Simulated scan of single mutants.
Amino acid sequence: MPLVSTGELVAQACVTGRALAAFNVISLEHAEAIAAGAEAAGAPAILQVSENAVRFHGGRLAPIAAAAAAVARASTAPLSLHLDHVESTELLYAAHPEGFSSVMFDASKLSYEENVRATADAVRWGHERDIWVEAELGKVGGKEGEAPLDAHTPGVRTDPAEAAAYVADTGVDALAVAVGSSHAMTERTAALDHELISRLRDAVSVPLVLHGSSGVPDAEIRRAVAAGMVKINVGTALNTAFTGAVRDELAANATMVDPRKYVGPARDAMAETVARFLAVVAG
């Protein structure tokens, strides 16, 4: 089916009281797995390509964007394309020509004042092109190249009053907040601050986004959705499923050389992970 806009999918999630899961795309197989998982779950989903993934592909957005878009259009599930954790304005400006209906502009490494100024500029640019813009306030941490960050450190989590001012000053369409999760977690042990999620929901007028959801147990995700989270980002869990399946296949057959023999099961494992997360966020 035709690509659906992220803004439309998020709006539908808000109306139904359910959350929407967004999954990271690194390779063609990731995109295929997300589509297959969404079809199996009978649910919409977001295919998101991060700046790190673009860097992995030699800094070229077009090839992975074209592949993800082609997979999404061939799917029977409602799927959108999202450009995630964009720090480069050059990459931001490439989103529209490549068919992305949304971006997450990440100025979280800047001072608060610089973050507001840069994000407001990104929002103005995006809205002129009907692009839905997400931003981050607080420090989720854990991404490659970042220093280790304890999600429980004072000052790390998002302050509701500051969040309200930030949304008003930038005009963002959604806000990623720091409430106890962290990127790149391979064990699902994160404990979220559900009371803070509720306070943030009451403080801002836009949907809340949970980054680092791979490390959050199912019950915690369900509680977070009930407390006000709308978009749930998942990345590392797909890679864990993929790599685990590859290891199992190669261990079972040490002479295997055809990548289809191990990449196929790895893609299936990611699809199962996608379907499971979609069932969790649906409540």
Score class of each variant (00 low, 15 high):
V216S: 02
T158V: 06
Y262I: 06
E272M: 01
H152D: 10
L192W: 14
A245K: 03
T240E: 15
V263C: 07
G235R: 05
D248M: 15
A237Q: 01
N253E: 12
A275Y: 13
A163Y: 10
T273H: 03
P217E: 13
A271M: 08
V234Y: 03
T255V: 08
R223I: 14
D169T: 03
R276K: 14
V177H: 05
A245T: 03
T170M: 09
A184N: 15
A164P: 05
D268V: 01
N233D: 08
V209P: 01
G180I: 05
Y262S: 06
S214V: 04
D193A: 10
V257T: 15
R188Y: 05
P265Y: 04
V263M: 12
H183G: 07
A161S: 15
K261A: 10
R199K: 03
V246G: 07
V274T: 02
A178V: 12
V257S: 14
G215R: 03
T158F: 03
L192S: 14
V230N: 13
V179M: 03
D173E: 08
A176K: 03
E195H: 02
E162P: 05
M270D: 13
A164E: 15
P207V: 09
V209F: 06
A168F: 09
V156P: 02
L200M: 07
L192H: 14
H194F: 15
G264T: 08
G171N: 08
S198K: 04
T243V: 14
A269I: 11
E249H: 07
A174M: 01
E195C: 00
H152L: 04
S205R: 08
V263Y: 00
T273E: 11
S205H: 03
S181Y: 09
G244S: 12
S198D: 03
A174K: 01
A151I: 01
E220G: 00
A191P: 00
V225C: 08
T186W: 04
A241Y: 02
N253D: 13
H152I: 00
I232R: 04
S198H: 01
I232V: 15
R222G: 13
A271W: 10
V204P: 02
V246K: 09
I197K: 02
A219N: 12
R223N: 14
A176Q: 05
E195P: 00
G235Y: 07
